[in-house]
Design a protein around this nucleic acid. Structure first.
Lengths: 209, 209
DNA sequence: CAATTATATGAGCAAAGCTCGTATTCTGTT
DNA sequence: AACAGAATACGAGCTTTGCTCATATAATTG
């Protein structure tokens, strides 16, 4: 559908002036709104530009293609999630009597409950681009937490935190969150769901071998 | 890009004659080949038809849109995987000395190692369509196996097999497989990877509460 | 061997992605 | 203040591509 991708340079202008920052902001916001209110089918670059109150040309000054907008959105969501998880962890450090793993996972679950459609589409784009690993970064925070404090949190035999088992638990949680945030599933947000996630993480790190 | 989806009837002809079956076959095969050899960017319906040696019109007689082709592909892969897992399970029933959970997971890992690109794109389509649950079906076989034979396979305190924890473990494994089958990761196929999956499943079902 | 039903064809329409030449605004320098 | 150059914005319009539909061919049935 594009004019053949013979333009190999997909580099775009990076916003320097405040005006440009605002433009990028406005594009991402419009995209999220359209996705959330009118669904993925309604999303096209001309319409994004229209809704954002800018021109298509401007849009393509900052994003090399439609996917790139979604990827940017996804990265933003991930950054937000990560911040939430870190906050939960640091809060738990001082005085809360609830299991920190639980607090961190709770923060994550909460984040996934918001803007479901927009998030889903954005993450889909991330995966489609082969960048699925990035989604795992906020989850990794939880995993590392468990690894570091394993002596305090887990029973007798603990497992070491290797790159491989970080990979495993991280993708496991990502997979679950992803599935759960598809609207049919009312599971997200139930206490049971939280319990199961906590159990999965702890059992995985606690088990022998 | 389509002529506006105002045609609400997405029903298509179902192949009755052998000729028609072959056509469908040939379409799916061409799609997989293009994906595998030339990448997702090269995939478009006109080209699929050309490569399949049929006309676009014919293609659209059996598939309501491009996505539908991918979804069909995904379903086919899933069916294959499921068969492989079942085979592994039944073989283990008679005489093998290896843990049946391990055998089932091994079958799954093996399946995911083939036609990686085509599979990835197909599964992506499945998710995009909100049909991600289907991917879980072959994995569920493994989970059920563990649940049913838990007394034999797992240590002391076992957990019941509820819909919720089937959901959890099933999506966990799906998430891991999915991530691992993205080409950057050389993890798929290592013995370590298999070990970790086995451990995850067993630890999850074995843990207390 | 009609008549009916199933299958195949491909030119071409409309939607959507994206470009590029031009216009406007900002920033720093003298 | 005046100006140059850089950054930003614009949007008509070109391509690509998804998909349809009028028409033709093959299979099946009675």
């Amino acid at each position: 559908m594009p004019r053949a991708a013979q333009t190999l340079d997909l580099t775009r202008r990076k916003p320097r002036q405040v005006r440009a920052m605002d433009t990028v902001e406005v594009i991402l916001e419009a995209t999220a709104r359209i996705l959330q209110r009118e669904g993925p089918a309604a999303l096209n670059t001309n319409y994004i530009a229209e809704r954002a109150g800018i021109s298509v040309g401007t849009l393509y000054q900052y994003f090399s293609n439609k996917e790139a907008i979604l990827v940017a959105m996804a990265r933003r969501e991930i950054a937000t999630d990560e911040a939430a998880v870190i906050k939960a962890i640091s809060e738990s450090a001082q005085g809360s009597d609830i299991d920190p793993v639980r607090l961190a996972l709770r923060a994550l679950i909460n984040a996934f409950g918001k803007r479901r459609v927009a998030r889903r589409v954005a993450f889909e784009a991330l995966f489609g681009q082969g960048l699925g690993n990035e989604l795992a970064s906020s989850v990794r925070k939880v995993a590392q937490l468990v690894g570091e404090r394993s002596d305090r949190l887990l029973p007798a035999r603990t497992r070491p935190v290797t790159p491989t088992n970080l990979f495993i638990i991280t993708r496991a949680i990502s997979g679950i969150m992803r599935a759960a945030s598809h609207e049919e599933s009312p599971l997200l947000g139930t206490p049971e769901f939280e319990d199961e996630l906590v159990h999965l993480v702890q059992a995985y790190f606690a088990g022998g071998s």
